[in-house]
Amino acid sequence: MSEDNYQTWDRLVYVKVPGGQVACYIYNDDPALPSVIALNGGPGVPCDYIRESHSFLADNSYRFIAFDQLGTGSSDRSNDTSLYTLKRYCEEVDAVRKELVDGPAHLLGHSWGGWLAIEYACSYGENLLSLILEDTCADIPFLVSELNRLRSELGQEIFQMMLAHEAAGTFEHPEYKAAITLLDYRHVCRLKERPTALQRSVDNMSEHIYEHMQGPNEFVYTGELANWNRVEDIKSVHCPVLIIVGQFDEITSNCAQQMYQKFPNAKMELFLESSHTPFFEEPVKFRKILLQFLDIQQKHA
């Protein structure tokens, strides 16, 4: 997708949330339009990649909002790890919604943003028009088993080498980093060149947040989220749900299927040529699927 397809936001607003202020980017800022709030992946990265890949919503009669989560991008920064919990992040999402949206909204979450969206839906479900879950899961222990399956597909010798480095804490060893690079290409973004916005988000990561909440890399979970599991709780989420997953996704189609079977009102779309970023890898199909889902919800609103 060309950078020329991205548009700039209409308004940049700083919203007070528990722990500080967050920078919110509003596209097509017409309060009469249905609002879509996006929660980017990470944790600990700014929202550049999600806002630029989803800004097309503003050209299709939706008011689109993305924001740099606390500790990232243009939002307030803090090394206080007590701020980086799912409970406080949910309060942050609700503070943004209350400040910028008059009533319920469509909530969209990618990867870590999907875990946050699920957690929000379990606690604040009355505030949602719909839930869009992109390349995410509801059960991290199950995800870890799937990641180990993907890693074993590199061959048992490489997999055992990775496990040995993880046990020793030698994550910077060249052979370990080479295996992570290969896994990233297979399962995170399969494009020959990473989109500028995605690379910009990764380059500006707040690593202390990522490590505290997740772990050392995309394939090892040692942080606060390691035991997170809402797979039974999502049975109580009754709003319409769209689940999007790539055929080669690090958060696998088995994870997506597990969610699909639990949500009372869900639709699942598999992107056959994508890994973890179908909005970059198959943008035409992605836009069509997302807009069809949102338009149907609006017709029934």
Rank of each mutant, 00 (worst) to 15 (best):
L107Y: 03
G155R: 10
L70D: 01
P34T: 03
A164K: 15
L163D: 11
V96I: 03
N79G: 12
N127D: 08
P141D: 02
L133F: 12
D30P: 15
L147F: 11
Q160V: 08
E92N: 04
L100Q: 00
Y25D: 11
A138V: 01
P43F: 02
N40Q: 12
L147E: 11
A66N: 02
I50E: 02
G41S: 00
E91S: 13
D59H: 09
G114A: 00
C90S: 10
Q156M: 11
I65W: 03
G109D: 03
L39S: 06
F56L: 05
M162L: 09
A95K: 02
Q160T: 10
E126S: 13
V96Q: 01
S145L: 10
I132L: 09
D94A: 13
L163C: 14
V93G: 04
A38T: 00
D80C: 08
A164F: 14
R63Y: 04
C24L: 05
D29T: 08
G44K: 03
S61D: 08
R63L: 12
V96S: 04
C137S: 06
L100V: 01
V96Y: 00
D94C: 14
E91A: 03
V45W: 07
L116C: 00
L129Q: 13
D76H: 08
Y89C: 11
H110Q: 00
F142N: 04
I132Y: 05
D48V: 04
T85Q: 05
C90I: 10
L147C: 10
E52P: 06
L39Y: 01
F142Y: 06
S130P: 13
A138N: 08
G41N: 00
S74Q: 14
E91I: 15
P43I: 10
R77S: 08
G113T: 03
F67Q: 12
N148T: 15
L70E: 03
L129I: 15
L129M: 13
N148L: 07
F142C: 14
K87H: 15
T85E: 14
G73Q: 13
N40K: 07
R149C: 04
D94F: 14
F142S: 06
Y89K: 14
L150G: 00
S111P: 00
M162K: 06
G71S: 13
D80F: 02
P31W: 09
E119Q: 07
Y25W: 11
A38D: 15
D80N: 07
P104T: 00
S130I: 15
H110Y: 10
I132V: 10
S53M: 09
Q160H: 11
V45D: 10
L57W: 06
H165Y: 13
G73P: 06
N28T: 02
